[in-house]
Amino acid sequence: MSALLKVERLSGGYEPVQIFKDVDLEVEHGACAGLFGPNGHGKTTLLRTISGLIDPWSGNILFDGVQLNTPGERRTRRSRNLNYDILVRRRMDPKKVARAGLIHVAQGSPLFPELTVAETLSIAPAAARGGGRPSDPELPFTLFPQLKERRQSKARFLSGGERQMLAIACGMLAAPRLLILDEPTLGLSPKLRLELADAVHAIRGAGVPIILVDQDVGFLRDLVDKLHVFDHGSISRVLPRADIPDHETLMADLFGKAH
């Protein structure tokens, strides 16, 4: 059985600075992959590359056997000042990625501040429609019942937790075949963290494959099949669920004792 998502020797970053290099990542059908690593080491950049927001420099991104990016190396930039944005074709299209069913729920996204919850949810199935997948309009409210009473609120009046719920709900309306959740519990109170964690468990229980990024090793250990440890721009270890150590051990491994 081939993997659902196969990332091969992927390198990328923000021109001209390379952020990650030669990353290999595989997510099986029906699996949940965890991504753990220190802040500022390029996890989010990697995920933004996989979902096509920024162009990869080299490597392959295969989703269900289909290559999402233009294969080959990026064009080398000989001049520091030429505007390559108009000289170079984009090598990846986020629209295509989303329509294929690879859905990225970005970290701490403010979504659309002036659109109401109902309006936001009404445009969320665009990717599902574009990819010909059915999408259940009631799903957001079964996952997060409290969104129902906030239907007419603009996104900017939502609390951090509600906004995160809305973001995940939008992701689910896109009928994901693989859902990327980038730190869904970032900056939330313990109570809300639990609530969102429950929702992620529910999504996982429904059989949706997930790439989950979080800073809480315990949370990851409950959910993921494999944990990918990401530091200094590459995946340094892949741990099967049984081998995932606790938070302190993992951090000590990554940073050593301070000297």
Partner: peptide
Amino acid sequence: VSFYPGGLWAAIQE
């Protein structure tokens, strides 16, 4: 401005 937003001075530096 489209192709070389840095302008003349950037060209001289380059």
